[in-house]
């Protein structure tokens, strides 16, 4: 599974870099969006393969059942049949933040497109944007 994940990361990341290097702001936003996916998949891959070593299906989700409390506290067998909870916790935070960044970026694109009437990065560089003091 790790290899599949790695290929996914490679492709998604590569495409996102390709989009980021483009001249168009919308494509750039999509690139940022894909970058989030690539990073999350990469972190998730760090939890190792979700397939049990003996090939009997998948590991358990990181949720304890009622009988497991003592066993879990001492580690060992109960934990080895469970996927890693830490990468998931990290990704959960990352999803929310990447969404926030996404929303802000899209708003910025709308505002700059309204002001400058272009979505081309090279054109934007030539614009004489008002400085904050002149804006009002």
């Amino acid at each position: 599974m790790t290899f599949v994940m790695a290929v996914c990361v490679a492709v998604v990341f590569g495409v996102s870099i390709y989009m980021l290097l483009g001249r168009e702001l919308k494509g750039l936003a999509m690139g940022v969006f894909l970058l989030g996916h690539a990073a999350n998949l990469c972190i998730l891959a760090q939890s190792g393969s979700p397939v049990l070593p003996d090939g009997e299906g998948l590991k358990a989700p990181p949720v304890l059942s009622h009988g497991d409390y003592e066993a879990a506290a001492h580690g060992g067998e109960a934990l080895s049949r469970m996927v890693d909870p830490l990468p998931q916790a990290l990704i959960l935070t990352a999803i929310v933040i990447s969404f926030a960044v996404m929303a802000f970026l899209l708003t910025l694109i709308i505002v700059s497109a309204r002001k400058t009437n272009t979505l081309d990065i090279n054109e934007l560089g030539k614009e004489q944007l008002p400085t904050p003091s002149q804006a009002h």
């Binding site: 760090q46 939890s47 190792g48 990181p62 304890l64 409390y69 003592e70 879990a72 506290a73 001492h74 580690g75 060992g76 934990l79 080895s80 469970m82 890693d84 909870p85 830490l86 990468p87 916790a89």
Partner: peptide, 18 residues
């Protein structure tokens, strides 16, 4: 880590402590 979990410490302390 005895097992292979990065988050083993969290797993062990999730419900009961040590």
């Amino acid at each position: 880590t005895e097992g292979l979990l990065l988050g083993e410490m969290f797993a062990r302390h999730s419900y009961k402590g040590t």
